[in-house]
């Protein structure tokens, strides 16, 4: 196979996954948090595609395509929720979303 070794793809994917996970845990704006979960999904996509290329079968590629559709649906719902919250003038800060606790 031409191009970089599979290890490099996996390193990039692991970095993306780490960035996404850190973003979910540390950022306060729900928009950025939502974006971070998408980055995590895309890290998984990259891993799937890299392995599919290494093994020369298509399962992983098809899986990645399906994941993209799912990710789009998840973003649509997330953005809808954020818009609904903004309309009700709820402060968009996940640290302050604490009406539910106990």
């Amino acid at each position: 196979m031409d191009g970089p070794d599979i290890g490099w793809y996996l390193i990039v994917a692991a970095l993306l996954f780490g960035i996404g996970a850190l973003g979910v845990m540390m950022r306060r704006s729900p928009l950025i948090v939502l974006l971070s979960t998408e980055i995590m999904l895309n890290a998984a996509n990259l891993t799937l595609i890299a392995f599919a290329r290494q093994q020369g079968d298509l399962d992983g590629q098809i899986f990645a395509l399906a994941v993209m559709a799912v990710a789009a649906a998840e973003v649509a719902i997330g953005l809808g929720l954020i818009v609904a919250m903004a309309r009700r003038r709820i402060v968009l800060d996940v640290d302050q979303a604490s009406a539910l606790r106990g």
Partner: peptide, 10 residues
């Protein structure tokens, strides 16, 4: 309800 939905989604 909105807050719960957002938390569950994230």
């Amino acid at each position: 309800s909105l807050e719960a939905g957002l938390k569950y989604l994230i």
